[in-house]
Simulated assay, not measured.
Amino acid sequence: MRGVRQSKPLPAAVRRWAEAHIGPVVAVRDASHDWYRSRVWELEGDGEARWYVKVSPSVKFFIRETRAYRHVVPALGHGRAPHLVDSRAKDRAVLLTAVPGIPAQGLDPADGEWRAVHRQACALCARLHEAGALDRDDRAEAEASLAAATDGAEKHLAHAGDRLTEDERQLIRDHAARLRRVGPVPVGYIHGDNQPRNWLWSPAGLALVDFERTRPAARVQDLVVLGVTEWLDHPDRERAFLQAYGREPTGAERHALRCLTVLDAVDCLAWGPDNNHPEVTARGRRTLDRLMKESAL
């Protein structure tokens, strides 16, 4: 079992930097995800004004997130995502405004309300996917994203080691090869971690947070986590999401999604156990067990 998460202190230098922009901070709350490299704090100022400070786990994520907030996130509209107040490359820190709501994963609404959540999440994802024309470099990265996912398969297989059977390894290699042959699919800017923990739900509507994985890529990559979690047991939520998107996935996208699902499973089984993350590990194992049964039919 995972141990009790220890509260992480806000670095003094980061606090001083934040206060130079927002004034005195009267209270700090650790708002990190339950992962040892997640570092996020809620700051409260005078009059109960709130902001968030996030220290990125890597330079790559810091660059992606700051770029997303400056050039992509504004397409979501006012109140549908935090606003970047400032960034500090020295500490890989971003200072963000707060948006109302609680993570949708903590909700217990009726099915009809969940469908409404998915419709709004889809509407925001569609805006993100179409957030301006891709320049030459971004288009090249986006069009190479499926090949990049394929290239990572062998690395994940090696890392997973004896957590996989030989038949499972063959299934993964087969789908990696198929993904390489999918052909052109629609591309754009994706959220990269599109799931209810990053959807904030409030009476004002839905907002998206956490853009450290936002990048140019095949749009269908934003559906992978939903496909192996939310939608697996609730196909009505999938229908609600796709109806709000305005079009059905193309045949190539559906084929790519199945292949990406397989690669997500091996990624989870390589990463989850080493990072003491049983939820991610269970996601990968459930997906792989299901696909192995389907392939045996």
Rank of each mutant, 00 (worst) to 15 (best):
R2I: 06
R5Q: 10
Q6T: 15
Q6C: 14
L10T: 14
V14A: 11
G23E: 09
P24R: 14
P24C: 04
V25D: 11
V26S: 11
D30A: 07
A31Q: 11
S32H: 11
S38I: 03
V40W: 10
W41P: 12
E42Y: 00
L43E: 11
E44I: 07
E44M: 04
G45V: 02
D46S: 11
G47K: 02
G47H: 02
Y52A: 00
K54R: 07
P57A: 07
S58V: 02
F62A: 06
I63S: 09
T66G: 14
H71G: 03
H71L: 06
V72W: 13
H78K: 09
R80L: 07
A81I: 09
P82N: 09
H83P: 02
L84P: 00
L84M: 07
L84A: 08
V85H: 01
D86I: 06
K90Q: 08
D91G: 02
A93C: 10
V94T: 13
L96G: 05
P100T: 06
G101Y: 12
G101S: 12
P103V: 08
Q105F: 12
G106L: 15
G106C: 02
A110S: 14
A110W: 07
D111H: 06
D111F: 05
A116F: 03
A116V: 14
V117P: 00
V117T: 13
H118E: 13
R119Y: 13
C122T: 11
L124K: 01
G132E: 00
L134Q: 09
A142R: 05
A148H: 09
A149N: 10
T150M: 12
G152M: 15
K155H: 15
G161W: 15
L164N: 08
L164P: 04
D167Y: 02
Q170N: 02
I172S: 00
D174Q: 05
D174Y: 00
H175G: 00
H175F: 04
A176T: 09
A177G: 15
R180A: 14
R181C: 09
P184V: 01
P186L: 08
G188S: 07
Y189M: 12
I190D: 00
H191D: 02
N194A: 15
Q195F: 11
L200H: 03
G205K: 06
A207I: 11
A207L: 06
D210N: 10
P216K: 03
D222H: 00
T229L: 01
E230G: 03
W231M: 07
L232G: 05
D233R: 09
D233H: 06
P235T: 10
R237W: 12
E238V: 10
R239A: 09
F241D: 05
Q243K: 07
E248W: 02
G251Q: 14
G251W: 12
A252K: 02
E253G: 01
A256D: 03
A256Y: 00
R258G: 08
L260D: 05
T261C: 10
T261D: 15
L263T: 04
D264W: 13
C268T: 08
A270T: 11
W271C: 05
W271Y: 15
G272L: 05
G272W: 01
G272A: 07
P273C: 03
D274E: 12
N276F: 14
E279M: 14
T281Q: 15
A282V: 01
G284W: 04
R285L: 00
S295K: 10
A296P: 00
